[in-house]
Amino acid sequence: MITAVAALSGLTMALATLLVLAHRMLHVEEDPRVGLVEDMLPHTNCGACGYPGCRAFAEALVGGEALPGKCTVSSEAGRERIAGFLGVDVGAEAKRVARLACAGGTNVARRRARYDGPATCRAAAQVAGGGKSCFFGCLGFGDCAEACDFDAIRMNEHELPVVSEAACTACGDCVEVCPKDLFSLHPVSHRLFVACKSLEAGDGILEDCEVGCTACGRCAQDAPGLVQIQSNLAVVDYDRDHRTDLPIQRCPTGAIIWMEPEGPRKGREAAKIIRKGTLPPAAT
């Protein structure tokens, strides 16, 4: 009995000594502010700041490599708190959002084939590009809404994703997941936007989708330089002053739009579409 107690006590002491030594000798010096700053960050590990998680971003902040403004998930107050703690500028980072370059919901865009495999965009895109008539358009199975960690994307009644400007943190998950590469990240100030990616020429596209860009060039005429027609698609040059909704006014289909926080606004000459139901598939 005594032997056993003594042996175990001895072993315990020996191992405890080893642990104490290890703690002393293998100690890594770390800036204690990293842990504190990390606690002030939102712990979403979304990567929108460009670092592989909140911990790495906290290290960069403490090391002076980045400014708190890069974290688009934190609130304004949260960013200021970190900036105050570290004694640095907040770093005004323009808020960015994901924008979808397609407006072809089921009420305006036709299907050319019925797809009945697994209901994800990425699977559908493997089968001859999915069932949409337009080869470029949104497939509408909502992989982006699924991928979004911030519930910033919801699918509307026409199977088209709608991005909430307030909730979007521009983390880029939707950009990565979309098999048609329809999402791109923009500063919120980019209100003038072309919601179409079809490179098809001419009015033929209207048989597939009523809101596609037909490359008629009216927007380019109204705002020379700012909007250009490239490969049958209107392209906005955001390096120029783009704070004008002039180019959208004469767009006959409403492919070029003005993104208000509450939703897109079409020009006054855009065809009004009041259809609520689904467009019938194209005759074959």
Binding site: G117, P118, R122, A123, A125, Q126
Partner: peptide, 13 residues
């Protein structure tokens, strides 16, 4: 189960 299609999508990813 549409296995091949799942694999095709996974391979693309």
């Amino acid at each position: 189960i549409p296995l091949v299609q799942q694999f095709r999508a996974a391979k693309a990813t």
